[in-house]
Computed example of a mutant assay.
Amino acid sequence: MAKIMKQYLKECDLSPCLREIFDRKLVPSTLRQLQKGEILWHEKERHSYCYFIKNGIIKLHVIIKDGREKALFFYTNGSLLGFQNLAENKMTVTTATAITPTTLYAVEFSQLYSFITKHHEYLSALTSYLFHHMATEAQEIVNLSLFNTMERLAGLLVLLADEYPKNEQGEVLIPINNQELAAMVGACRNSVYNALSLFQKKNIITKHRGSLIITDLDRLKSETTKKKG
C-alpha cells in the first residue's frame, strides 16, 4: 500500500513551519504549476532540487521487472519531497508524477539546508519529518500484513476524501481510476474492482468511468475500524 504522506505531526506541525519559509521567501524558490500526468522528475535523473507541495498530489513510483508500475508514496499538501534523491553522486531511483493539477515550490536543497541549519526551529521540523517518514514506511509493512484489500482500500479512500471538496450533499468525487487505486493499496486490479463493487452495493460509493463518488463517508470510515472492533 502506497502511503499518502500528510505531514500533520500532532502538536509539532511540519507543514505550517516549512510553508512559512516559502510564503515569506526566506530562501530563493520557484513556484511551479504541474498538470495531471506531468513528470516532476524521471528515474536516473540528476538534480539538486527538493519540493514543497502547496496543493495537489505527487506520486512517487518505479517500474518493476515485469514492466508494471509500483507506487511507493503519494505526497500531498504541505509535504516535502525530493530529499530522497540527494545522496552524493547518485541518480534518482524513482519517477515523480502529478496525479492531480499541482502547485509546488522548487528550491535548491543546498540553499534550504544552509538556511535550516542556521534556524533551529526549522531544523527541528525537518528532523521530525524524517522520523515521521520512517515510521510511515514501517506502518506500511504492518498494513500489508494485517489488513485485507477492502480494509486497506477503505482507509485509502478516507484519506483521499480529505484532499477533494465535498458538495452540498457531503459527497466527494475521487478522480482516480481502479488501476491507480490498485497501485496505491498494493493489490491487483480485480481485487480493487470487487471491493469497490461491494462498497457500491452497500451504497457507500457510486462508481464511474475513471473515478468514483463517496456518498457515505461515515459508513466508509466504519469499514476501516471493523477489525479493531
Rank of each mutant, 00 (worst) to 15 (best):
A2Y: 01
M5W: 06
K6I: 10
Q7I: 06
P16F: 06
C17D: 07
C17E: 07
D23S: 05
D23H: 07
P28V: 05
S29Q: 05
I39W: 05
L40P: 06
L40K: 00
K44I: 13
S48N: 12
C50K: 00
K54I: 10
G56I: 03
I63D: 08
I64L: 05
K65G: 05
K65C: 04
K65P: 03
G67Q: 07
A71W: 01
Y75I: 04
L80Q: 10
G82Y: 00
N89W: 09
I99M: 12
P101V: 09
T102S: 02
Q111P: 01
S114M: 12
F115Y: 10
F115V: 03
E121P: 15
H132S: 13
E137Q: 04
E137Y: 03
L146G: 14
L146H: 14
F147A: 11
L153F: 12
L156M: 08
V158P: 10
L160Q: 15
D162Q: 07
E163M: 13
N167T: 12
Q169L: 09
E171R: 02
V172N: 01
I174R: 10
N178C: 15
E180D: 09
A182C: 03
C188S: 11
S191E: 04
S191H: 05
Y193V: 07
Y193K: 12
A195G: 03
S197D: 15
F199P: 00
Q200K: 13
K202Y: 13
I204S: 02
T206L: 12
K207E: 09
K207M: 11
K207C: 08
H208K: 14
R209K: 15
L212K: 10
I214M: 10
D216C: 06
D218F: 10
E223Q: 04
T224C: 05
T225K: 14
K227Y: 12
K228N: 15
G229Q: 07
